[in-house]
Design a protein around this nucleic acid. Structure first.
Lengths: 193, 193
DNA sequence: GTCTATAGGAAGATAGAC
DNA sequence: GTCTATCTTCCTATAGAC
């Protein structure tokens, strides 16, 4: 009863995600998505009756599940704050392929005033990420407002270093940002400078 | 001899830039650009025979001139390092409209391996920005390698806070990042924590 | 310098055979 | 579940009048 589907659900979403992250949502034509997945356009519509927008949503939901499993839960889990943040950076390094792959949340975003189809999902993921990171920083002994500010800065650093890496054509800014992140988040917790 | 052009060159490029920054390069159709500028498509082609790609290039060059005049030169100019960085944040706050407008350099970027038409110009602007910021930090007494790392982090913070602001639908992360930037860049120069 | 009108092609999406 | 073939709409770009 096998061999009817040419590509598994996981691999399919994976390829779609990689394409969106490479060329953006608008830049990802069905021709391109078809080439990337090995499925003809009509086959893509069979799997995603809602068309490109549904592909975007499912890719985003998949990223949300990844975020929960590989970032949010570890951040809320066992170990010292520093160890948990360091573990998170390792996961992010893999997810972004050392900085080569851009972030969906950046490439699917809509203007601040606007209301694209992905806005709510993206916002939710950013908020969850900031909250989880702020939780760890607070656990290290910082007041809640400081923890929140630091967490926002941490997420901004990750996103911004990906943007910079893309702009400069080098993954170095991303790798450096990840390396420095635990120190950035916990500076002043025991030592100074 | 006036009144032939319905919109001046400066205003024209300004509107095109705003549109690209709102919906991205691929998302900016000629219909949209026409609506934003008040010029019909044929008129846009009269001003930009190279079509949308030329519009993107000229908008990018205009941003480069703005960067030189309002960021690079002030950073290399008079005043204390802290004052110069603070002056830069005020300029950036205006340019990004307090975080409401995204960054061209982000929205026109191509994948790390790829080679879009804007790649060289974008790379050059990011490098010039990082260099100028690193120069100020070095002037404040930090070793060149530390200054470079801090400057990269500063640019990443600006870019990332814009991404985060867009994702959260609030300009707050951007404004906070700007406020903290002088302290971030010069921490340890005299005081600690 | 701006416009209306239109060419020519690529986009998203669907029908129906296998 | 996948395909070829097709439809319609939108896109970039051009022609030519004013």
């Amino acid at each position: 009863m096998a061999r009817k589907t040419l590509i598994g659900e996981e691999a399919l979403v994976e390829r779609l995600s990689a394409t969106f992250r490479d060329v953006g949502y608008e830049g990802a034509s069905l021709a391109l998505l078809s080439e990337a997945t090995g499925l003809k356009k009509a086959s893509l519509y069979h799997r995603f009756p809602g068309g490109k927008e549904q592909m975007g949503m499912e890719v985003l939901q998949d990223a949300g599940r990844w975020l929960t499993a590989h970032v949010l839960e570890p951040l809320a889990g066992e170990g010292s704050p520093r160890a948990r943040i360091a573990a998170m950076t390792r996961e992010l390094d893999g997810f972004y392929r050392g900085g080569e792959q851009a972030c969906l949340l950046n490439l699917l975003s809509s203007p601040i005033g606007g209301s694209g189809p992905f806005k709510a999902a993206i916002r939710q993921m950013f908020e969850a990420f900031v909250d989880a990171l702020a939780g760890v920083v607070a656990e290290a002994g910082f007041p809640a407002s400081v923890a929140r500010d630091r967490a926002e800065r941490g997420v901004a650093l990750i996103q911004g270093s990906l943007v910079l890496a893309r702009g400069l054509g080098s993954t170095e800014p991303f790798r450096k940002a990840l390396d420095a992140l635990p120190g950035d988040m916990l500076a002043g917790a025991g030592e100074c400078a």
